[in-house]
């Protein structure tokens, strides 16, 4: 298993295409005013599917410092 990770979003790079929202297996993301956000109920399982297909590098997983 990999170390602990966290989801990071940089809305200033998000163009609101909705790819991450559509292919998130947990439907954990949404667009608010054309920018990606993690929904309040935080269903994210840190799978990284969003990072894999974000054409704008606006969402990614980052290693948490131990």
């Amino acid at each position: 298993m990999v170390g602990k990770k966290m989801l990071v979003i940089d809305q200033s790079w998000c163009k609101g295409c909705g790819i991450c929202v559509a292919f998130c297996p947990k439907q954990a993301l949404e667009l608010v005013e054309e920018k990606v956000c993690l929904k309040a109920d935080n269903e994210c399982v840190l799978c990284g599917q969003c990072e894999l297909r974000c054409p704008d590098y606006a969402i990614w997983l980052e290693d948490l410092e131990e």
């Binding site: 790079w13 163009k15 909705g18 894999l52 054409p55 704008d56 590098y57 606006a58 990614w60």
Partner: peptide
């Protein structure tokens, strides 16, 4: 600060790129 991958291998002063929203080129 973008992801480590982007920071390491892309010229971040040129990003975000000019490709349209949803362009597959960014993924590739």
């Amino acid at each position: 600060m973008p992801s480590e991958l982007v920071h390491k291998f892309m010229r971040i002063d040129h990003l975000p790129h000019i490709w349209c929203a949803g362009c597959g080129n960014g993924i590739i």
